[in-house]
Design a binder for these strands. Structure first.
Ligand SMILES: [Mn+2]
Ligand SMILES: [Mn+2]
Ligand SMILES: [Zn+2]
Ligand SMILES: [Zn+2]
Lengths: 148, 148
DNA sequence: GATGTAAATGATACCACGTCTCAATATGAC
DNA sequence: GTCATATTGAGACGTGGTATCATTTACATC
């Protein structure tokens, strides 16, 4: 059930494949879409209550550094939500009115990434692309434009 | 010094143009690049020490809801940094090792935005594009590739 | 399979960011 | 100028995330 390639990426980067890390990754892979740290903590605890808070946060940091997940701001909440970055990228549209998010796949950013690597001497491993706007439901619902 | 159009956006959205809001916006507009809430609090206090913490955070929320600024998590799971969204968009590269951010301008996302508007029936007003990877300094600094 | 060792862990104390409450004040419509 | 109301500032409060440190685990080597 656990995507083995992600655990491989941990091992290949020199990190041990511990129980805490395996469970946290599994929780995130199992869940569709974004998760708050509270949701992750709950899900981890329900699978293995012996795993400590600190290790969950440490794992979230580690997975972020490995570009396996990414913290992103979602409206209304002071804390980030974490989202898997399959193949290193993720894209969505956020309605600034109702906060619904619409995921999409094609971004066509490969050539831009290459250009940036040359221009700035960086090695890029992933990206996050967020569009903001008003979703169809909200614009139909009579929300006047200048109220946003 | 304060870009009048942004204050207009506040007023047009039905919010009062108060001293706290003007100073917070001015601080963010004056500063180049990303700011943490701590930096914003400091800068606001040094301009007008009578402005309270709560009002600063309330203003950050408001400016975010109006898509004038955007919080992004440039460092692990710590606190977000806030960045102006001139003309509704912003782009940068984040080094996942040292958290340095490199800003860039061209993104060429206009045609993608148009396609998405048709495909999902949304009205898009802006976007944030983040690449992550390893900056030149970090890869030279002996960080082995497979360690990230 | 046993051994050694450094990385990783879990418990808990701790801190800081951000929120809530509420009386006082400033704003903008009239 | 008057008034209604949005907004404010002070400060108590809560909660998400971190630092510490003794203990355990993973995994390389034999
Ligand atoms: Mn998403
Ligand atoms: Mn930036
Ligand atoms: Zn919506
Ligand atoms: Zn770097």
């Amino acid at each position: 059930m656990n995507n083995p390639s992600r655990l491989d990426r941990l091992r290949d980067a020199g990190y041990k494949l511990t129980n805490a890390r395996t469970v946290v990754l599994n929780v995130i892979e199992t869940h569709e879409g974004h998760m708050t740290s509270a949701e992750i903590l709950d899900a981890v605890a329900s699978r293995d209550s012996s795993i400590g808070r600190a290790s969950v946060f440490r794992t979230l940091d580690l997975l972020t550094r490995l570009a396996i997940i990414r913290p992103t701001y979602t409206a209304g909440s002071a804390t980030p939500t974490y989202v898997l970055m399959p193949d290193g990228h993720h894209h969505h549209i956020v309605c600034v009115q109702c906060h619904q998010t619409i995921e999409f796949e094609d971004c066509g950013l490969g050539s831009l990434a290459e250009r940036l690597e040359g221009e700035f001497g960086v090695k890029l491993t992933g990206h996050l692309l967020e569009f903001y706007g008003i979703c169809g439901a909200c614009s139909e619902a009579g929300v006047v434009d200048d109220e946003v």
